[in-house]
C-alpha cells in the first residue's frame, strides 16, 4: 500500500514538490503502476538469469586515450551561475 508518507518520501528523494492535496492521487497512481508491474511475479523465472542489460552486447571498452575536453566557454555556456572558473550553486552547508 502506497501511503501519503511514502509519496512524500519518494518526492523528497527526487527533490520534487508535491502539494498535500495531490498526495493521495499520486499514491493511487503509483499503486496501480506497481500492481501492473507485479503481474510479472506470476511468471516462473527460477531458470532465467536476472537481466542486467536489455541488449545482448558485452565488453564495450574505450582505450585509455586522452580526448579534448570542453573549452571554458563551452563548459559554462549552460551554467546558470558561475564564479571564478567554478559552477556556482546555492550553499549546501550552513
Amino acid at each position: 500500500m502506497i501511503t501519503n508518507d511514502t509519496v512524500k518520501y519518494i518526492a523528497s528523494l527526487s527533490r520534487l514538490h508535491i502539494d498535500d492535496a495531490d498526495l493521495s492521487r499520486f499514491g493511487g497512481e503509483l499503486q496501480n503502476i506497481l500492481q501492473y508491474v507485479d503481474k510479472l511475479s506470476e511468471l516462473d523465472v527460477s531458470n532465467v538469469p536476472p537481466t542486467s542489460h536489455v541488449f545482448r552486447v558485452e565488453n564495450v571498452f574505450r582505450e585509455d586515450t586522452i580526448l579534448p575536453s570542453l573549452s571554458p566557454v563551452e563548459a559554462f555556456s549552460f551554467a546558470i551561475e558561475s564564479h571564478d572558473g567554478h559552477y556556482k550553486v546555492p550553499k549546501v552547508i550552513e
Binding site: 574505450r62 585509455d64 586515450t65 586522452i66 580526448l67 570542453l70 563548459a75 559554462f76 572558473g85 567554478h86
Partner: peptide, 27 residues
C-alpha cells in the same frame, strides 16, 4: 592513475585549473 577518466577521454590529472577537464559525459 590511468591517463583518462573512467567513462570518458578527459584527462585524469590532479591540480589542473578548475573545470578544464570536463566533457558532456563527466558533466
Amino acid at each position: 592513475n590511468t591517463a583518462t577518466k573512467i567513462f570518458c577521454g578527459c584527462r585524469n590529472d590532479f591540480g589542473l585549473e578548475a573545470n578544464t577537464c570536463v566533457c558532456p559525459v563527466c558533466l
